[in-house]
Design a binder for these strands. Structure first.
Lengths: 358, 358
DNA sequence: ATGAAAGCGCTAACAA
DNA sequence: TTGTTAGCGCTTTCAT
């Protein structure tokens, strides 16, 4: 009756008593340590089975390791985060480590702290805004790998995509298609402020650079989520309804792009008159009804890489490593000119629907 | 230098020493317990601040509670799960509890166990296949709320949607539209086997019942994911390419429905000749390029409800509670007859995009 | 109001 | 090979 009048949990003592051995013996067996005879191992295993014993992580963590890796992500609904989690989880298969997730609501500090207090042997986190010094301090106590940070810290590792390369690929693509009036729809001011080095700040800066280089500086148009709304649909709708709407939109990430596509669909503009490109190459981008051009930076691989690096750190490495992922642009229908689209459509009949309904 | 040559963590002893008080005093302060003078509280708080102290959850959990709620979900990519997590997280705001997630790869046992060992005060889980007796045993040691189980256990609570009601709504809708050749695309055999009482088994059974009641028993057509593939697109494509393809598809959940829509778009069938209805009313279903009819069972509310019930259990309740959610069908363009679609489409041109496959 | 001390379940020296 | 023992950081009586 340990809590709430519930049944007491089975402890290592119960197993030891049942098997007629010492606690240390049980501990050795469950840790696969050396110095256990076959017969003893057998008896202990039998007792464990019989009692349904599972070692308490709290006790274990108190002594040494918890065999848990914490992954902190902002928003669960961002599909890119799912990819990262899947990748990390995959990299942990075959190791004694389990992945636990913490979702940050606001500033990622609290979520990371929840993980730190919470018995993990190491942390992978997506937290672009968290203070670097704070992280350095934290990292001096716990192995840490950060995703999507462009800094070069001493105490933790990073895995980051070349956001400038990716953004430039988008802009080159759109410019080469003849677009001049290209808008950029992105995240809130907080994560895109100049010079803060977040992925979205870099993408925005690259957008601005490219527009300048192309001589389109007066056509620059940056849109952020409308305060008080849940997405970018309303902001984009306003943009499209303006007097000089863009002919192309570079969206900060795919979820933004989906909202942009929705706004275009809602608008008076013919869908194929507004090119849209996203970022992250989320699975849904490949859906034929969406068919969104997007920059692929392999979230799966990034997650796996981060987990592998964290494991190295847990194993003892202390020199920082910084893994860079080179993104590639995946072009799909959302940014193909209409005539090209016609030629590339695998199914001409799909258009019948248009004829009937439009 | 506790691990990996890293800096030792700040403990309650450090705080006590710095503040010049006993450990017990510090403990009282951080727990807001009674019996602390204002001056002592102040000194302790100052020391905590100065040292950046955070109590070790491992140690706390060993003695009492960890203030962590574990949520186990199968697949992170299922959008419905995100809704549940969001709902649960929301319900925990303002409480001292934090939510941690564990994603199950295969049989949910291991993920749940990872959470149990792992220092949570209670568990919310989506685990339709886990053995009821096993859960009862587990629940006698730890507060548990299960989602999507149609059983009526004694030791744990449940939050479940009326899958028969939802499925019947779908079928009535499709039948009233005049469809006779209605296919059901669903999950693997494992989770849809007759009589196992999982949501998907109930939906399938209801589908069969409705087809029978409508006198269409020979037109029954059930499709599952092709082994070795990642989705339902290939299976559905085969179905559509058959000699007598369905005119309507009832998909087991929205993610399946998206695959079905993709297969339809890929096929020789005009999109509006194949009605598609999903389940869960995932946010993307409302996207104008998707516009998927779907059964809404409010994952947000289910998650919040589950968290609230778990909190009650942690607070001491032992009588089981079983919360039932009544689903409602949300009709959208994917299952409207063409003429109706014309009348209701806000922007005729929006549909043009469906022509783009890429 | 404050502190001393006994554990929670486990691991890791060390002793036998 | 096996068992004994000393904590890990914290909470919680129980004295003071």
């Amino acid at each position: 009756m340990s809590r709430n009048g519930l049944t007491r949990q089975v402890t290592i003592n119960d197993v030891a008593r049942t098997a007629g051995v010492s606690r240390a013996a049980v501990s050795k067996v469950i840790r696969d340590a050396s110095g256990v005879s076959a017969s003893m191992r057998e008896r202990v295993l039998a007792a464990i089975e019989e009692l349904g014993y599972r070692p308490s992580l709290a006790a274990r963590a108190l002594r040494g390791s918890s065999y848990r890796i914490g992954l902190e992500i902002p928003h669960l609904d961002a599909r890119f985060m799912s990819l990262i989690a899947d990748g990390a989880k995959g990299a942990l298969v075959g190791t004694p480590y389990e992945l636990v997730l913490a979702v940050a609501d606001g500033p990622e500090y609290s979520a990371i702290e929840a993980l730190v207090d919470g018995l993990v042997d190491g942390i992978i986190a997506v937290a672009p805004l968290v203070d670097g010094d704070w992280l350095e301090t934290l990292a001096s106590r716990l192995p840490i790998v950060m995703l999507g940070r462009h800094d070069s810290p001493e105490n933790y590792d990073t895995v980051v995509g070349e956001d400038d390369v990716g953004a430039r690929a988008v802009m080159s693509h759109l410019l080469s298609l003849g677009h001049r009036r290209i808008a950029h729809v992105t995240e809130s001011e907080a994560v895109t402020a100049p010079g803060i080095g977040t992925p979205h700040a870099v993408r925005l800066q690259t957008y601005l650079d490219c527009m300048l280089e192309a001589g389109h500086q007066e056509l620059v148009s940056v849109v952020r989520r409308s305060p008080g709304t849940y997405g970018w649909r309303a902001s984009t709708a306003r943009l499209l309804a303006g007097s000089e709407p863009p002919t192309a939109v570079f969206a900060g990430h795919d979820d933004i792009a989906f909202d942009v596509l929705a706004a275009v669909a809602d608008s008076e503009h013919a869908p194929d008159k507004v090119a849209v490109v996203g970022y992250d190459n989320t699975p849904l981008a490949a859906h034929p009804l969406i068919s969104l051009s997007s920059v692929d930076q392999s979230g799966l691989e990034m997650g796996a890489q981060a987990a592998a690096m964290l494991l190295e750190r847990i194993a003892g490495r202390t020199e920082p490593r910084h893994h860079v992922v080179t993104p590639t642009l995946q072009v799909r229908a959302s940014s193909r000119p209409a005539d090209l689209m016609d030629a590339s459509r695998p199914n001409a009949r799909a258009r019948e629907r248009t004829a009937k309904t439009g």
